[in-house]
């Protein structure tokens, strides 16, 4: 089972850990950061929804390879993916995060929270107009968005501090996915059996590698849940600001999940 979890994870990772580590100091130039910041809020939301959807597609492939997942009824497969896909992406983000300068790998380079500023407010051109009119220079249209981005970075930082191996990250992702306490499961007992097997295998791995202290240091599950509901709140606030935006602006899988 341990081999299956690691193999499934490695086969469905977009980037190898060594590659992400090797490039961890390749950061965006200040001009490149400005270009991201000058984008309109809608453009940046669509861009991030696109990247997130790609990551979620990898999660679906990961799930399909996990022993026992495809034996569940399709209703439960969908329930588990709907509830867990974003959480798995957030856990996996620690592999693509440089905790030394608080940057994350995004579209080919590493960038900090400032890269995502346009998600929460109008681009720099809008700020210029605001200043000319004597209003606040950085009026925030979705102030909660900056909290969401910082919380996601804080979460990645706290996971990075645990220095998890690929096997450990793979198990954390598998356990986030095969969670028998998700609401609306039809065959909860079947999921609980899979979850139980994963937990035993994970404990054995931790014992073998003398990493048993990891379990006590993991962030509580409520923290992931909170990040997911913050994401939904911001998405709803974004839709209220842009009621005319065509649904087709977001990838179909993103619309289906959120």
């Amino acid at each position: 089972l341990t081999q299956n979890v690691l193999k499934s994870y490695l086969e469905t990772c977009a980037q190898r850990t060594e590659e992400l580590q090797r490039r961890r100091w390749e950061t965006f130039s200040s001009q490149e950061v400005c270009a991201y910041q000058r984008q309109s809020m809608a453009e940046m939301w669509q861009r991030c929804a696109g990247r997130l959807t790609e990551a979620i597609q990898q999660v679906v492939e990961f799930a399909k390879r996990l022993q026992g997942f495809m034996d569940l009824c399709q209703h439960d497969q969908i329930v588990l993916l709907k509830a867990g896909a974003l959480e798995v992406v957030l856990v996996g983000m620690c592999r693509a995060f440089n905790a030394d300068n608080r940057t994350v790998f995004f579209e080919g380079k590493y960038g900090g929270t400032e890269l995502f500023r346009a998600l929460g407010r109008a681009g720099d051109s809008g700020r210029g107009r605001g200043q000319a009119e004597g209003t606040a220079s950085d009026e925030e249209l979705l102030p909660g968005c900056h909290d969401l981005i910082s919380s996601i970075f804080d979460f990645a930082q706290s996971l990075c501090a645990l220095h998890c191996s690929d096997s450990e990250v793979a198990f954390l992702c598998a356990l986030v996915l095969l969670n028998a306490s998700r609401p609306w499961l039809q065959e909860q007992a079947k999921v609980a059996v899979l979850q139980g097997h994963l937990e035993v295998a994970f404990r054995l791995l931790l014992r073998r590698t003398q990493r048993e202290e990891l379990l006590a240091r993991l962030p509580p599950a409520g923290r992931l849940r909170a990040l997911c509901s913050q994401h939904l709140e911001q998405l709803q606030a974004f839709h209220r600001l842009h009621p005319g935006l065509l649904p087709a602006a977001f990838p179909p899988l993103y619309r289906e999940l959120f």
């Binding site: 679906v60 969908i78 709907k82 289906e256």
Partner: peptide, 14 residues
């Protein structure tokens, strides 16, 4: 309701 997820799950391991 979950057309895309159904499709992704039904496709063989790609």
């Amino acid at each position: 309701k979950h057309r895309i997820l159904h499709k992704l799950l039904q496709n063989g391991n790609s």
